[in-house]
Nucleic acid binder design. Sequence first.
DNA 1: AGAGGTAGCCAAAGCGCTTTGAGGAATGGG
DNA 2: CCCATTCCTCAAAGCGCTTTGGCTACCTCT
Lengths: 343, 343
Amino acid sequence: MNLKQLSQMLGLSQTTVSRALNGYPEVNRETRERVLKAVRETGYRPNKAAQRLATGKAGSIGLVMPTSPGNSSDVHFSEFLTGLGEEALRHDFHFVLTPADPNDEVGALRRLAASGNVDALFVNYMRGHDPRLEMLKTLSIPFLVHGRSIGSEPDYPFLDLDNEAAFYDATKLLLQLGHRRFALLNGPIYLDFAIRRKNGMEAALAERGLTLDEACTSHTPMTDEQGLFAMERILQMEKEKRPTAVLCSSTVLALGAVRAVNQAGLKLGEDISLIAHDDVLTLLKPESFTVPLTTTRSSLRAAGVRIAERLIGEIKHTETFPSQELWKAELIVRASTGVAPAD
Amino acid sequence: MNLKQLSQMLGLSQTTVSRALNGYPEVNRETRERVLKAVRETGYRPNKAAQRLATGKAGSIGLVMPTSPGNSSDVHFSEFLTGLGEEALRHDFHFVLTPADPNDEVGALRRLAASGNVDALFVNYMRGHDPRLEMLKTLSIPFLVHGRSIGSEPDYPFLDLDNEAAFYDATKLLLQLGHRRFALLNGPIYLDFAIRRKNGMEAALAERGLTLDEACTSHTPMTDEQGLFAMERILQMEKEKRPTAVLCSSTVLALGAVRAVNQAGLKLGEDISLIAHDDVLTLLKPESFTVPLTTTRSSLRAAGVRIAERLIGEIKHTETFPSQELWKAELIVRASTGVAPAD
DNA sequence: AGAGGTAGCCAAAGCGCTTTGAGGAATGGG
DNA sequence: CCCATTCCTCAAAGCGCTTTGGCTACCTCT
């Protein structure tokens, strides 16, 4: 069933039927109702490809799925995706997901844009000096980035968490509790958020004349396994040199780190204080750790909702948003942080 | 840059250029190379919407994302998605993800198919007597289901895990270890896999004249929280009646369950034996639990790869696959299972 | 009554691609 | 030398939709 058949059936022109369906004013009320009734009865659905070809709008936003053989699936990514989906549902939008080799993200993005299948692009997992930015600016479709790219001109639309402030505040808290030796379990250092979190932490330390020991810093994929390894390594240091305060870039890393602490027979919140960044993952609630975790919290999913909202608004030209948003994380104190142990 | 411009640039007709690009034999080798060179230089990419309109093929497979406001993101789903993506990447396919209210999955599926945006459909989270099946059969595009639907005619293409056998075997193992009182922490009972796992477990018990106590059975969303609650409830029973063996439908449930066991001061593998089904989630490795978990294992991600492979093969008409596949889970014994404690 | 609007509808062009049906040029055979 | 054959190329139709630019009939106003 297509427009032609439908309009013949109704004894109307394609034009009129099309207008009736798309809410144009120059259609008689009765006619419109007749059309809508026929649509309901026949189950007619406009062909999206044709619609897209004619209008240039696709009702879809494109994103590159950072996946490659051997690469692990990422809870953070799917939490975010859930948020995107939640908002897209409200506007009858869908996503076009292009899986891409991480080494060819620029290419994948370009192909996606050129395919004419999407109205807007979204990118995340920003790196320092991210090469995708330059490419995106040359494109004619709107885009939005989640995160920022340190080292690039900040002239692109983004939504980011104030990672620097989050880790600055967290460090500050630990300093107030008397801690002097710190460790950081971070994400891969080429990622922008990891760089900024480290910066934030170092800034707070510097205020007290302290520095972050490289030996106590790890930059790894954010899995529980890596968290375990990194923490084990740190706990092997002599007690006098060993950090008493640890910052984790994800509750996932913290999951492993806490296990290491337990296995070493140490008490979280007494021997070792830990603050993790909490993306509000469904699976991993900091409050349901055996010792509830102090966290810097910002929901990834909420970010997804917001990003979809902005992107769709831009496509529909209905709303304008501040082009650059910086969210603050909440610092939530629970039992995993305590006064520094006496040496 | 479109076909018309490109062909004018080359002094060729659109036909010839199109044929050159799509590998038709009736194009001179030199001509073809000239065309390909121009494509490389200009960065020309065919418009997918137009291609789709002309050919009827879209190079994409559609899936409904089970998401709604307030609904939680699901690690199992994203693990699977990763597998799909991995395979799709190899064939330059992409996905169209339609987020849908779980109450309107049939509608979402129909819209997706009618939109003309996808070549094939994929569905999962099958229920008993699943209404989507009937709808899918009326559609003209191929589809594949992950899982099965108990109570429906088994005349549709599927890939499923032999859930019955997996839980039958697991139960059998526990019986051999002397356990007589069992509990089951299962997924929502309307889901097909949950029904079958329960059946498998009950079949093994029945062979010894045992039955599964309803009070020791829970059907919940598969989150760690639910696992914790369910297990806490079970551990409140009097010691003489309390189950000594527990089956979990997911390592995620097990995560909570194990926490409950620990909090009760019981020893896993001694006081309580536990077997979980392991979907090989990146985040949750059964071997890195404090007491490594005995599991029935089957990679969700591998299933994703296989499903994409079959779907894409069907679209391209290149390969035919057995239309129905039943995978076996591996039973892997670790430390969480032990001889039943003497009463 | 005639000018000027307006409401409601339509025919046709166009979006960028593939594919059909046909034609021109070169080659070979009788 | 002519016709058949092969190789390459082309013009044009068509995919299903939106949108432009009329057109007609009916009002309203003076």
